[in-house]
Nucleic acid binder design. Structure first.
Length: 419
RNA sequence: GGAGAGGUACCCAAGCGGCCAAAGGGGGCAGACUGUAAAUCUGUUGGUUAUCACCUUCGAAGGUUCGAAUCCUUCUCUCUCCA
């Protein structure tokens, strides 16, 4: 087995391959190009999108050359795979701006620099809008469309489900376009491998077949396990919605907390998938008698460091340890926490608890804040506030002249007072 | 184009003239138990309000009625069958 592939197996990525031996042999022989596609459906990627890119990271390190394909063109269609309903269509402008912001996020895991360093393959980023938007419908049907059997497409699991609920023609075309992408990448860039989540299996196989029918070389498809959580919740979803990589949408502190709170059963698996720690090092966390919480802290730290950088990871960890751990609760350690700033004069005049909580992320409306307060889950520092009429003034300030609001036992929010 | 079935809160889904801010489930939040875990149990879950109360919501717009998520009209979208 090719060592790069073996790494992916050992880390728990791989689900299926079109021709494992063939791929392994090819990768032993030469540095290959492979690609992953992402749709530009949102402003930010979330953590669930990242699995294939983490895999690309390992392959790049082994000398292979990743292509990240932003689906500027395919996003206009919408992939029906794994979805029960048609996706709303986005404007071209939205898609363009989305794909721009995704580029920077992918750089955290795949190295797109001109000179990635010894042994690493050179990566590139492409956008399929470049070739899809100028397609001529008749030509496309004659050259590409004729290779697709509707009978066969309908037998794919991805479409079967949608046949129950309805599937529009535009979505039915998605597979052709994704296959065409692979064909173009093979022709123009000698790309031999497409990787993706297991829900992409049908689309990937179609691409491999299309290239063969068009007279190209043998190409390969490799899919990864869809990441699930032990409790059955969807990966990358949290109480606040998707765990986005954009710090504006999901703060690095909350991001850290998300990983800090994964299930026991998921911890080792996630360390393998979502960090670059060596397997030997990860194995030390599996030993008898090791506190699982140490592993979770490591997971949270490493993952935050990869996505948001070392500085943010340090801040998030310090803040977490200041409240949950033994680390001293100093102003410096609070830096990573989500916060708002209010004027001293306002605080001296007194602010209603409800309003104060509603201004933080802990509650979005006064009513929600009221429920929290009446339910006994609202705290300021170590003081529980259970009267919705309570006025918060400067007497609540802690030794650092700040307010630390808390919802329940583990959601903290920092209020900085400006003089 | 014809016939039928539908669009209910974050999601699924009941309700089919007043007792409906709307059953039930899921999800979320909080409490208990813990390990900043899971599972479990309890409470809560449109907005403004200390409370009474008021405001907005059942695809959209009009109408009937003392009163409409519920009845009527038009529009719109989805699905199924037929052409």
């Amino acid at each position: 087995m090719n060592s790069a592939l073996q790494t992916l197996f050992d880390r728990g990525f791989i689900k299926a391959c079109t021709n494992l031996e063939g791929l392994s042999d090819l990768m032993d022989k030469e540095s290959i190009r492979m690609y992953v596609g992402v749709d530009a459906t949102g402003k930010s990627l979330h953590i669930g999108h990242m699995v294939p890119f983490f895999a690309l990271h390992h392959l790049q390190k082994a000398g292979h050359q990743p292509i990240a394909l932003v689906g500027g063109g395919t996003t206009m269609i919408g992939d029906p795979s794994g979805k029960s309903e048609m996706r709303k269509m986005l404007s071209k402008e939205e898609i363009l701006s989305n794909s721009e912001s995704m580029k920077s996020q992918l750089q955290t895991v795949v190295d797109f620099s001109e000179n990635p360093g010894e042994g690493k393959g050179r990566a590139m980023m492409l956008n399929n809008a470049d070739w899809l938007t100028e397609l001529n419908y008749i030509d496309f049907l004659r050259e590409i469309g004729r290779h697709f059997s509707v009978n066969r497409m309908l037998s794919f699991e991805a479409y079967k489900q949608r046949l129950e609920r309805g599937l529009s023609f535009i979505e039915f075309n998605y597979q052709l376009l994704q296959s065409y992408d692979f064909y173009i990448l093979n022709k123009e860039h000698d790309c031999r491998l497409q990787v993706g989540g297991d829900d992409q299996w049908g689309n990937i196989v179609s691409g491999v077949e299309l290239i063969r029918k068009m007279g190209g070389p043998e190409c390969f498809g490799l899919t990864f396990n869809l990441i699930t959580r032990a409790d059955g919740h969807k990966m990358g979803k949290s109480e606040k919605g998707a765990v986005f990589l954009d710090p504006e949408l999901y703060s690095p502190y909350d991001f850290y907390q998300y990983w800090r709170n994964v299930n026991d059963e998921d911890t080792i698996r996630f360390l393998k998938l979502f960090t670059f720690l060596s397997l030997e090092e990860i194995a030390t966390y599996e030993k008898e008698g090791v506190n699982i919480n140490d592993a979770k802290e490591r997971l949270a730290y490493e993952q935050t460091k990869i996505i948001h950088g070392e500085e943010e990871a340090d801040k998030a960890r310090s803040a977490a340890l200041a409240f949950f751990g033994s680390k001293a609760d100093t102003v410096e350690n609070r830096e990573g926490m989500p916060s708002i700033t209010i004027a001293m004069s306002e605080l001296e005049a007194g602010i209603g608890v409800l309003e104060l909580f509603a201004r933080t992320d802990l509650a979005s409306t006064n009513s929600e804040a009221r429920r929290l307060v009446q339910g006994g889950g609202a705290w300021i520092g170590e003081q529980k506030v259970d009267d919705p009429r309570a006025l918060i003034d400067s007497s609540f300030l802690d030794e650092h002249d700040e307010l630390i609001l808390r919802s329940g036992k583990k959601r903290y929010f920092r209020v900085i007072v400006e003089r």
